[in-house]
Design a protein around this nucleic acid. Structure first.
Length: 297
DNA sequence: AGTTGCACCTGGCTGC
DNA sequence: TGCAGCCAGGTGCAAC
């Protein structure tokens, strides 16, 4: 099954970071395989990823029923019948592969964990850069856990609107770009979707985060526009199957490929699709920012 | 306290 | 052709 099509831009060939839409796509792909299944075996091939695996990781998972698979920000949360939650983060290059246990493909050099399920399915986690990690956390402690206690608004659903955005960004001295990347303000956005949302909203990444509210603190048109742009960009990417490109496979084992063109991300020097001006690349906080200097003010 | 910058890690690309 | 060196990025933590 080959889903790769011709790639025409550098971005499509090269970039594939699991931001919220990609993680949600992975969740939806893994859900049918995991939920309702029991873990019958865990093959853990190294002691750590970004962080060490939890103590007695395989032992604590063995025999457990997976009751649900949720997502919070960029985290996948598998609810177990032991009242623990398996928390998984894909880092920058993590991916899952689903196949039959009886006929597993050759072990990849970066296959770090494999879960064998009661259904005869094997789910393998692969992560070349090992920026991902897994944790086991008691369900009752999840909300207060340091990983989740300070996480910001979900861009999906109805909690993110202009007022919430303006409130969160009020008094921030930093740039819109940096504020949008801050997971404690808005959850799940990474470099790609921040660039895209700002372009869509027509706002400069250099603009002060605090400029989304008027003197009274009320959200202005920029706040409403940006909130809408974030929701739209994320929803469209999920609908398109996540912008999962080369080093990010969909959990069914296929290359996650889809029709999705970034308007500015990694398109330095190419014409802005809105006005034709050349897309500019700058560095903010050590990260590339791509934007249109004419459309985005 | 709020903000900035670096380390972690590896594959892929660029330039010699 | 081969190889060294740089770049990408999410997160946590150290340093201003």
């Amino acid at each position: 099954m080959q889903l790769r099509r011709n790639c025409d831009t550098k971005a499509e060939q090269r970039k594939a970071m699991p931001e919220l839409p990609e993680v949600e796509t992975v969740r939806r792909g893994l859900e049918p395989a995991l939920v309702g299944a029991r873990v019958v075996g865990v093959e853990q091939r190294r002691p750590d990823l970004r962080f060490p695996f939890p103590e007695r990781f395989a032992e604590r998972l063995a025999g457990r029923l997976i009751k649900a698979l949720r997502r919070r920000a960029k985290y996948l949360l598998a609810d177990l019948d032991s009242a623990e939650v398996l928390v998984m983060h894909l880092g920058m290059s993590g991916s899952f592969r689903v196949e039959e246990s009886a006929r597993p493909s050759n072990r990849g050099s970066h296959d770090h964990v494999a879960f064998d399920l009661s259904t005869g399915t094997r789910v393998t986690y692969n992560d070349p850069r090992r920026f991902g990690f897994m944790q086991l956390i008691a369900g009752a402690d999840l909300a207060a856990h340091p990983l989740f206690a300070t996480i910001g608004l979900e861009p999906l659903g109805d909690e993110l609107d202009g007022a919430a955005l303006a409130r969160r960004f009020a008094n921030k001295r930093t740039s819109l770009k940096a504020a949008l990347l801050d997971q404690s303000l808005i959850a799940g956005l990474g470099n790609i979707y921040v660039c895209e949302a700002l372009h869509r909203a027509g706002l400069s990444p250099l603009r002060a985060a605090s400029s989304l509210a008027g003197k009274t603190g009320a959200p202005n048109a920029r706040a409403h526009g940006l909130a809408g742009a974030i929701r739209d960009v994320v929803a469209e990417a999920i609908a398109a199957g996540g912008s999962s490109l080369r080093d990010h496979r969909r959990p069914d084992g296929r290359l996650g490929y889809f029709q999705h063109a970034f308007r500015v991300y990694d398109r330095e020097g190419t014409p802005c699709p809105c006005c034709g001006a050349r897309v500019r690349r700058i560095v903010q906080g050590g990260r590339s920012t791509f934007y249109c200097p004419r459309c985005q003010k």
